[in-house]
Write a protein that binds this DNA or RNA. Structure first.
Length: 627
RNA sequence: GGGGCGGUAGUUCAGCUGGAUAGAAUACUGCACUGUCACUGCAGUGGUCGCGGGUUCGAAUCCCGUCCGCCCCGCCA
């Protein structure tokens, strides 16, 4: 028994028993002969007493403690700690992983720490109590949604992540296809079309906890990726969908302890909402309810199907070829009594759609609609927006075809999970509810994406960059140096064009600078030859070492093939995937300085480290390429 | 694409109307301590003041440029 790890929450109930605990050092208080460790695991914190400790222990280290659970002496009971009535008297202590000095504090709520630091060290940030609670709450919420949906006989079905881009709406994130060079997949903005196709596929009730991805500029509360509870049902009315969704939402939020303002969500007309609140995203809570973090859900219904294009909005002008665009979703079904207008394209501003939004505490929490399952109706929607026959075919031809082969009436909704979690946790940023969110600049947590890819990979994908970022080659050199674990110094200076100029601004001599000359081989392909910047290259000598005739590449060819200007080519053949020869001078030198992809940056390092990192052809260590 | 704000010990910040050896809290290191619980006491380490250029006898402080970050508008069916 005592060989098995016990959670703190269970251990504290076993007074008198011997237990094995494993967890993190919350705090360590050393009193010489006796010391105290507040040990933390997923279930809680408990004080462990260690007598005669010799081990080095730091905050946030991972330790194993075997000891006996004891009632604390009356005078040392800690009322502020849930487990403060007991403590574990350690008989053995093992450090499983010693933590070094922490880059960010784990104690506290973390609000005052730089977001960039929090995300870079997200694995530390997530240890804090506040985030542990949110992550657990999110898991529980989604679990409850699943439970309820399975009760209703929904099927959980996955739809592709690599799919076809939709031309309207947000910008697509695209993924190059290696097997089809020059062609691209798009990451889904939502599973909208697939889920409707699943209805045509007779799945009747579908749901998915779906990741949606949109390449639009970021905000504090908007990342590229977000998560939706996406569902769709066949043979249903608007009221049917709303009833099921309301049940699922209520069950899920209650399972994480939320209080609802209304047991039955109010249903409000779009027009009334606009009149009453000036917005279709209104907050029904009183001041008191706001303080208590009560959830005030409401439905908004009877939205107009179309709106006039905002002339100020260039994208909408382009989009709405006729001057009309849909307000929510082009796949919606118009109200029965407006169906005739819709098919004929009359009274367009008066056409209402079976669309419903779920709002919560002033935020849009979800939106859905009964869909058009008759191809005539869907086609009419696009005709109203002014799409040509050809545009329609290109955009939704596959949907029209599917709807002509036995499509049931259907409808559904998508609920934003990130936003719901944010509201439930009482947070003001979506990122607090996401385990690994992005920074505002689109950088990923912990890992440093996006990052450049090799020329080879681009070639394989059939992609040629119109203009490589000024920094790309410089960054690639840096990552080679970092990978080789060598030290180097980056010197910033004004832009230079020649080696003489470079040597002058750096205050270094020209013979310290390996000048990278790019040459073409007779058999095709290129080689790089590095000689001191104050010397010229002896083509004959190169030919002897390479073993075939070579000639100088023109500046245009260099820039075209390597993406770097002459004069800024770094002495790193492998950055460009070409063989490199280094004149024997450099195999003896102490230090080297060179431009690396940028004319305003130089890198200074040991010559031996350059050889280690750049891996020139070993045969060149004895070669003299100078003239 | 446009606008606003910021960048100083590991972290959070002060200093910024030019005149230091650049501070505080916390973290970290060492010593002392058998009852603490944010332990305490003593001693200590730690800085290219984002980077580059300029003005000046003198720049963390003023000017120009640049990079990075945060927020907002546009955009997000």
């Amino acid at each position: 028994m005592e060989n098995e790890r016990v959670l703190i929450l269970d251990a504290v109930k076993q007074v008198g028993k011997k237990v094995k605990l494993q967890g993190w050092v919350n705090t360590f208080r050393d009193h010489g002969k006796v010391s105290f460790i507040d040990l933390r695991d997923t279930s809680g914190v408990v004080q462990c007493v260690v007598v005669g400790n010799k081990e080095k222990i730091t905050d946030e280290s991972v330790v194993e403690i075997i000891g006996t659970v004891k009632e604390r002496p009356k005078e040392s009971v800690n009322k502020d700690l849930p487990t403060g009535g007991v403590e574990v008297e350690a008989e053995s202590l093992k450090v499983l992983n010693l933590a070094l000095e922490l880059p960010i504090p784990v104690q506290g709520d973390g609000y005052d720490i730089n977001e960039e630091m929090r995300l870079k060290y997200r694995y530390l940030d997530l240890r804090r109590e506040r985030l542990q609670k949110i992550v657990k709450m999110r898991s529980k919420l989604v679990q409850a949604m699943r439970e309820k949906l399975f009760e209703y006989d929904f099927l959980e079905i996955e739809t592709p992540m690599l799919t076809k881009g939709t031309s309207e709406g947000a910008r697509n994130f695209i993924v190059p296809s290696r097997l089809n060079p020059g062609k691209f997949y798009a990451l889904p903005q939502s599973p909208q079309q697939y889920k409707q196709i699943l209805m045509v596929a007779a799945m009747e009730k579908y749901f998915q906890v779906a990741r949606c991805i949109r390449d639009e500029d970021l905000r504090s509360d908007r990342g590229f990726e977000f998560t939706q509870l996406d569902l769709e049902m066949s043979f249903v009315s608007q009221e049917d969908v709303m009833r099921v969704v309301e049940d699922v939402v209520k069950y899920a939020v209650k399972s994480v302890g939320a209080n609802l303002k209304d047991e039955k969500f109010p249903v409000i007309n779009y027009e009334d909402a606009m009149k009453e609140y000036g917005s279709d995203k209104f907050d029904l809570r009183t001041e008191k309810e706001k303080k208590e973090n009560v959830l005030a859900f409401a439905w908004v219904v009877n939205f107009p199907f179309f709106k006039k294009v905002d002339k100020e909005d260039a994208a909408e002008v382009e989009e709405g070829r006729s001057g009309w665009v849909f307000t929510h979703n082009p796949f919606s079904q118009p109200h029965e009594e407006h169906l005739d207008w819709h098919l004929k394209g009359e009274h367009i501003p008066e056409i209402k759609a079976y669309q419903y939004d779920l709002v919560c505490n002033g935020l849009e929490s979800g939106g859905g609609s009964i869909r058009a399952h008759d191809p005539k109706v869907l086609r009419a929607t696009y005709e109203i927006m002014g799409y040509s026959e050809q545009d329609i075919e290109e955009n939704i031809g596959h949907m029209l075809e599917a709807f002509s082969l036995g499509a049931p009436p259907h409808g559904g909704i998508a609920l934003g999970i990130d936003r719901l979690i944010m509201i439930l946790a009482g947070e003001s940023s979506l990122k607090e509810g996401i385990a690994f969110p992005m920074t505002g600049a689109g950088k990923t947590s912990v890992m440093d994406a996006p990052s450049p890819v090799s020329k080879d990979l681009l070639k394989e994908l059939g992609i040629k960059l119109v203009k490589e970022s000024v920094d790309a080659v410089f960054q690639r050199v840096k990552s080679i140096l970092d990978a080789a674990e060598v030290r180097y110094e980056v010197i910033e200076h004004k832009e230079v064009k020649t080696s003489e100029e470079a040597a002058r601004v750096r205050g270094t001599s020209m013979d310290m600078a390996p000048k990278a000359m790019v040459m073409k081989k007779k058999s095709g392909g290129m080689v790089m030859v590095c000689v001191p910047a104050d010397r010229k290259v002896n083509i004959k000598a190169v030919k002897d070492v390479v073993g075939e005739p070579v000639e100088m590449a023109s500046p245009e060819e260099v820039e075209d093939k390597l993406g770097v200007k002459v004069g800024a080519v770094p002495p790193f053949g492998k950055v460009f995937g070409i063989e490199m020869y280094l004149d024997r001078e450099f195999w003896k030198k102490d230090e080297v300085v060179f431009n690396a992809g940028r004319r305003d940056r130089s890198i200074k390092m040991k010559a031996s480290d350059l050889i280690k990192a750049a891996e020139p052809n070993p045969a060149s260590s004895e070669a003299d390429f100078k003239k």
